Amino acid sequence: MKKEEKIRVGISIGDLNGIGSEVILKTFEDSRMLDFCTPIIFASVKILSFLKKHYKSNVHLHGIDKISQALDGKVNVLNVWKESVNINFGKEDLKIGSYAIKSLKQATEALKNDEINILVTAPISKHSIQSQDFNFPGHTDYLNQELEGNSLMFMITEDLKIGLLTDHVAINDITKTITPELIEQKIKTIHQSLRQDFAIMKPKIAVLGINPHSGDNGVIGTEDDEILKPTLQKINESGILVYGPYAADSFFGSDTHKAFDAIVASYHDQGLIPFKTLSFGKGVNYTAGLNKVRTSPDHGTAFEIAGKNVADHNSFKEALFSALTIYKNRIEFQELTKNPLKKQPRKPQNKA
């Protein structure tokens, strides 16, 4: 990519009855954002104009019918549909969900075809998106199907990064899902992401136990001793610095997490409860392990405040900046890998 070319950011609109459109508009009310990227919102200029008026936003929208019409210095809105849409803030609606999927699918196609460089997704309602044509629990699973690689939900801030062995899996299925193969795959994905996406050349990774107190030597479950520990030892022998399993209940309260570049949680709430407690409003959901860059804010549709013009847009803004940084880091990593003598090794940096 030439230096003068701005990074093209595709933005899927998410659930129109939620706060996604609000946080998108608020982010680009600061015209300086256009110095960093060229945004292309996959939606409808008609509906964005309505929402702009509702939120009394000063954003200038540039409607386009083809991505090739997108202009630098403008907030571009690609018309994925042109018909009117009835907004009912705060309500789950399958029809509204279908527009969220139209936006996501077209943005993903553009990402696959290199018409956009990165993808930032606004929140969707997991219930409203379900249909015969779309049967996924969320963005991550869909993107894992559509893009090359093995996806991993990686929750990130500048100082805290938490990856998950299992994400949207029911509690009673967790121990059946965690296998040595899965553990090895996820940790290798995190290790590679830390190196290529965050410029941390020798990352240290901590792993939280599956059971309370990591099983207490088999008293509270045997999975930690029989599955997790031997797999971590094998991974360590391959040269990856991985430590654990650590008892999850005291790990964050004792600030042990600060000694590591990333933490691997065994299941969704084990990782996301401390992450959102420590960084809510600043966190980013990054889909690591894929051949393309996708980020999202760390919150959902927030139906309870939708339409009230009180939503905090900082997490969406962080998601955008994180995607830009990761994209640039990947280019630099690829150049360094192809020409190892061309540049000095990069200094470790945790900044997302």
Rank of each mutant, 00 (worst) to 15 (best):
E5I: 06
K6H: 13
I7D: 02
I11V: 03
I11M: 00
S12W: 02
G20M: 06
I24G: 02
T27F: 01
F28G: 05
S31Y: 11
L34C: 00
C37P: 00
V45W: 01
I47F: 03
L48C: 14
L51V: 13
K53I: 07
Y55N: 01
S57I: 11
V59L: 14
V59I: 13
L61I: 11
G63F: 09
Q69S: 12
A70D: 07
L71S: 07
L71C: 07
N76R: 06
N76H: 03
N76S: 03
L78Q: 10
V80M: 02
E83Y: 12
K91N: 13
K91H: 14
G97H: 06
A100R: 05
L104Y: 00
T108A: 04
L111A: 05
E115I: 00
I118L: 09
I118S: 02
L119F: 04
T121K: 04
A122N: 04
K126R: 03
H127A: 14
I129P: 02
Q130S: 06
S131C: 02
Q132A: 11
Q132C: 03
H139K: 00
H139Y: 04
T140I: 01
T140V: 00
L147E: 06
E148V: 11
E148N: 13
G149T: 11
M153F: 12
M153S: 12
M153H: 10
T157V: 03
G163K: 09
L165G: 05
L165F: 08
L165R: 09
T166E: 14
H168T: 12
V169M: 13
A170I: 13
I178S: 09
I178A: 04
T179I: 00
T179Y: 02
E181A: 15
E181M: 09
L182S: 04
Q185C: 12
I187Y: 13
S193K: 04
Q196F: 14
A199R: 14
I200N: 09
I200F: 11
M201V: 09
M201T: 13
P203K: 00
V207C: 05
I210R: 09
S214E: 02
G215R: 01
I220S: 02
T222D: 13
I227Q: 01
K229L: 10
T231Q: 08
N236Q: 15
N236Y: 14
E237I: 06
E237F: 08
E237R: 14
V242R: 09
P245W: 11
Y246A: 06
A247I: 01
A248T: 10
S254H: 12
D255T: 08
T277M: 06
G283L: 09
G283E: 10
Y286V: 03
T287C: 01
L290E: 08
N291G: 04
T301Y: 00
H313P: 10
N314R: 14
L320V: 15
F321D: 06
F321V: 11
N329C: 04
I331N: 05
E332L: 14
F333W: 15
Q334L: 14
T337V: 15
P345Y: 07
P345I: 10
P345T: 06
R346N: 06
K351V: 14
A352F: 15
